[in-house]
Nucleic acid binder design. Structure first.
Length: 455
DNA sequence: TCTGGGGTCCTAGGACCC
DNA sequence: TCTGGGGTCCTAGGACCC
C-alpha cells in the first residue's frame, strides 16, 4: 500500500476516516490482461490489442511486457511494430471484455450501491462511512482488490475524499497498487505533481500553463485567478479546487447516454461520391441498430469526415421528429455530404452520429401529447411513449417497423454480417472483400428462397 | 511519430423571438 | 424606423477522456 508518505500499514482499522471516501478502480492493461488470462502461452510476453501492424490504426491496449519496449496506448500501430517486432497482435474480443468488466462492477456493487462506471475498465465507488457502508474504506479497498484478483486480473485503486483525488491517486502505483490519501492530506499529496497528473489538464492546457510558469498542481492551486481564467475559462474555480483536493463532483449513478456514433477509417482514402454514400449508409445502419438496442431515438443527426491531411469537419441537422431508423435519417446525412466534400477531396474517415435524445416531446406529452408539431402516432400508447422509441418509424407504418425489428433479431442471433440492405452490403464487399468470399455460405434468413436445405 | 473509435463538455456566432 | 438586450436553439469546432 502506498500512502501520502506516512506509513499507515496495519493501522487502517484503527485510524478513523473522517468525511467522504471515494475510490477509483482502474483495471490494469485490461484488454491485454484478459488476453493473457485466456491465452496462457501469451503470459510474460508482449501482447498488443488493437490496430494491425500493417494498416492504419493505433494500439488500444498493450501488456506491461510490451510497454517495456516503449509501446503505449494510442500509438500508431506501425510505430509499435517497429519498437516491438516480436509482439503478439490480437484484434480483441469485446464480448469477453464486457463480461469480465461486469463481474468487476458487481464486486464493487457488493460493497456499495453508489457506483459510477466511467468506462469499461474504470469506475468510481462512494464508500463513505454511513448509510450504505459500515467498514473502514481501506479495508473495503483491499477486499475489492482481492476479489478482482480472483478473476485472474489485477487493478489499481486510488482512495481519497473526492473523485479527483482518487483518480490522481490511482495513477501513482500501477499495476496492482493501492494508493490512499487520508483526509486532510490532499493538498500535500497533490502539490508536487505535474499539471498533467490532474484529470482535465490535457496537452493544450499543459502547454499554456507551462508558458505561464506553472508546472505543478500546487502552483495551480495558488495561481492568480485571472491566470486560471485565461487557461480554464469557466472551469477555473473548479480546477483550483481539484488541485487543493477539496470536494468536487459527486459520484453519479446511472448516467444516461447523450449520443450514439460510429465512425470508420478506411484502409485507403475515399474519393468517389458513391463510396462516401455507401459508407454513410452503412454507418447509419450501425448507429440506428444501436439506438434501437438502447431504446432511444434522437433529433440531431451528424456527419463527420477526416480529410487526408487529418483535419476534421462536421455537419449536423436537427429534425422535427426523433429517429432510430436509418431509412429515416440516412437521406438527411447524404444531403449533408455536400457541406463537407467536393469532388477531388480525399476522405480517410467518415462518421455518423445521432444525439438530442429527448426534448420537447416529453414536455408536450406532459400536457397530453396532442401538440400540433408531433407527427401522427405519438401520444399515450404505453409507458414508452415519452421516450420516443419507435415514433419515427410510425410514419412508415407498422409493416416497416416490423421488418426493422425482425432484422435486428436476426442480427442478434447470427451477427452483424448476416443481413444487409443493398447499399450496405455492396459497400462491405468493396471495402473488405470478406463478404464476397463468404457468399457461398451466405443465407438470408428473411428470404425463404435463399435459405439452405438444412432446416 | 504520423495519428482509431467511442464519448462528454465548452465556446462562440447567428437566427429568431419577445 | 432603426434600435437594446435577454433567452433559446442550432451549428461548427475543439479540448479532453478512456
Amino acid at each position: 500500500m502506498q500512502t501520502d508518505g506516512t506509513d499507515y500499514a496495519g493501522i487502517e482499522g484503527i485510524l478513523p476516516w473522517d468525511g467522504p471516501a471515494i475510490l477509483l478502480l482502474d483495471l490494469d492493461a485490461f484488454f491485454a490482461s484478459v488476453e493473457q488470462l485466456d491465452h496462457p502461452e501469451w503470459r510474460g510476453k508482449p501482447v498488443i490489442v488493437g490496430g494491425d501492424r500493417e494498416r492504419r490504426g493505433v494500439v488500444s491496449t498493450c501488456s506491461y511486457e510490451a510497454r517495456a519496449f516503449g509501446v503505449r496506448s494510442a500509438m500508431p500501430s506501425v510505430r509499435a511494430a517497429r519498437l516491438c517486432p516480436d509482439a503478439i497482435w490480437t484484434p480483441g474480443n469485446f464480448p469477453r471484455y464486457i463480461s469480465l468488466s461486469q463481474k468487476v462492477m458487481r464486486i464493487m456493487q457488493d460493497v456499495s450501491p453508489r457506483l459510477q462506471q466511467v468506462s469499461i475498465d474504470e469506475a468510481f465507488l462512494d464508500i463513505s462511512p454511513g448509510r450504505f457502508v459500515g467498514e473502514h474504506p481501506v479495508v473495503l479497498a483491499n477486499r475489492i482488490r482481492e476479489r478482482v484478483a480472483q478473476l485472474g486480473i489485477t487493478c489499481s485503486i486510488g482512495l481519497g475524499v473526492s473523485k479527483s483525488v482518487a483518480k490522481v491517486a490511482s495513477d501513482r502505483d500501477k499495476p496492482n497498487g493501492l494508493t490512499v490519501v487520508f483526509p486532510g492530506r490532499e493538498a500535500d499529496f497533490l502539490a508536487p505533481l505535474p499539471v498533467r497528473a490532474m484529470s482535465g489538464v490535457g496537452r493544450q492546457a499543459e502547454k499554456r500553463l507551462n508558458g505561464l510558469g506553472i508546472y505543478t498542481l500546487g502552483e495551480i492551486a495558488s495561481a492568480d485567478e485571472h491566470i486560471l481564467n485565461q487557461v480554464f475559462g469557466k472551469n477555473a474555480a473548479m480546477m483550483r479546487n481539484r488541485c487543493l483536493g477539496v470536494n468536487d463532483s459527486p459520484v453519479v449513478t446511472d448516467e444516461e447516454v447523450k449520443s450514439v456514433s460510429n465512425e470508420m477509417t478506411f484502409s485507403s482514402d475515399l474519393t468517389e461520391r458513391i463510396e462516401i454514400e455507401q459508407s454513410v449508409s452503412m454507418l447509419a445502419a450501425k448507429v440506428a441498430r444501436r439506438l434501437r438496442h438502447k431504446e432511444v431515438a434522437g433529433y440531431t443527426v451528424g456527419l463527420k469526415v477526416r480529410y487526408a491531411d487529418l483535419g476534421t469537419a462536421h455537419a449536423q441537422k436537427t429534425l422535427d421528429a426523433p429517429v432510430d431508423d436509418e431509412s429515416e435519417f440516412a437521406p438527411v446525412l447524404l444531403g449533408l455530404i455536400d457541406q463537407l466534400w467536393q469532388p477531388g477531396i480525399h476522405l480517410r474517415l467518415v462518421g455518423v452520429s445521432v444525439s438530442s435524445f429527448s426534448r420537447r416531446v416529453e414536455q408536450l406529452d406532459i400536457f397530453g401529447g396532442q401538440g400540433a408539431a408531433l407527427p401522427p402516432g405519438k401520444g399515450r400508447d404505453g409507458p414508452t411513449s415519452g421516450r420516443t422509441r419507435g415514433q419515427a418509424g410510425t410514419r412508415r407504418g407498422k409493416g416497416h417497423r416490423a421488418l426493422v425489428e425482425a432484422t435486428d433479431r436476426v442480427k442478434d442471433r447470427f451477427g452483424e454480417a448476416a443481413v444487409g440492405y443493398g447499399r450496405e452490403l455492396r459497400f462491405r464487399e468493396r471495402d473488405t472483400g470478406t463478404i464476397a468470399q463468404k457468399k457461398d455460405d451466405y443465407r438470408d434468413p428473411l428470404d425463404p428462397a435463399s435459405r439452405g436445405g438444412d432446416d
